[in-house]
């Protein structure tokens, strides 16, 4: 469809896309570049080529402890967000409850309210009620902000499925539980998977909530990196960051192979 476009404009469009691509990818390329540097100092283009900073990271208790916390929180968040969000999306989709539209808006509202406002409220409320924050606080907080993603992707796939499947199952003798388990859940599955991947990714990479809800002995990976950047960054930060970038790339590939990334990109 780039037919009938003036030639100079086509050339211009390609240059524009290339520059935008450069701009969007530059910071990531730089981080990966720094991580393979041999030098003591952060430098790009890298001096020499070595994997010593990766070795350093894998032997560092600090990074490993943070990674373990991040991983545990992200996995717990993924499971709870999928369970709670998936169930809510099914109920909203069926539209038998009053205020279904309002409920959909309610479930999506954490998407548009800035995390910092929520983070400070969560910190204050938790401290007032339960004292110091814990991994439980982080779990609840991340579940709340990732829930909308699961609800949204699940609602999206449900709205594309044949609206008569549940009724057809009824006429074939399926009871309530069988309909939910054998008919509705399989329809939700792609949405749940996509939402689950997003939830994992957001929880694992999220910095704002984690910065507010941290304890010296409970720092997630992004918080650990942020701390290093504020004070004394060395190329090991780049190595950790590169590992996280690799994880993101892996997630994108998995989502695309299983579900097609385009479907979830533009809604």
């Amino acid at each position: 469809m780039v037919r009938a476009v003036p030639a100079w404009l086509r050339v211009g469009a390609w240059v524009f896309v290339a520059l935008t691509a450069l701009f969007l990818l530059a910071p990531l390329v730089v981080v990966v570049g720094v991580s393979v540097s041999e030098s003591q100092f952060i430098a790009f283009p890298p001096d020499g080529l070595s994997l010593r900073w990766y070795r350093e990271v894998l032997q560092s208790d600090r990074y490993l402890a943070s990674a373990w916390i991040s991983l545990r929180v992200a996995l717990a968040v993924t499971v709870t967000a999928c369970l709670i969000g998936g169930a809510a999306a099914i109920a909203i989709h069926r539209r038998t409850l009053p205020f279904s539209e309002a409920m959909a808006t309610f479930f999506l509202s954490p998407l548009v309210l800035p995390t910092i406002i929520y983070a400070i409220g969560m910190l204050m409320l938790w401290s007032a009620l339960f004292g110091p924050v814990s991994i439980l606080t982080l779990w609840l907080g991340h579940t709340a902000i990732t829930l909308p993603f699961v609800v949204r992707t699940t609602l999206a796939v449900l709205s594309e499925s044949d609206p008569f499947l549940e009724e057809a199952a009824k006429t074939m003798g399926a009871n309530r539980l069988q309909r939910l388990w054998l008919v509705v859940l399989p329809q939700c599955l792609p949405g749940l998977l996509a939402g689950g991947f997003f939830a994992f990714n957001i929880s694992f990479d999220e910095a704002v909530l984690s910065l507010f809800l941290r304890r010296p002995d409970m720092t997630t990976l992004p918080v650990q990196i942020y701390g290093q950047l504020e004070f004394s960054p060395d190329p090991s930060v780049a190595a950790v960051s590169s590992i996280m970038i690799a994880l993101t790339v892996f997630l994108i590939i998995v989502i695309d192979r299983m579900l097609g990334i385009q479907k979830f990109a533009s809604n």
Binding site: L28, S241, T248
Partner: peptide
């Protein structure tokens, strides 16, 4: 999407 799904902290580091 790749930058979008990468932690803000990492992109800022870059």
């Amino acid at each position: 999407i790749l930058p979008l799904m990468t932690s803000v902290v990492i992109r800022t580091f870059g």
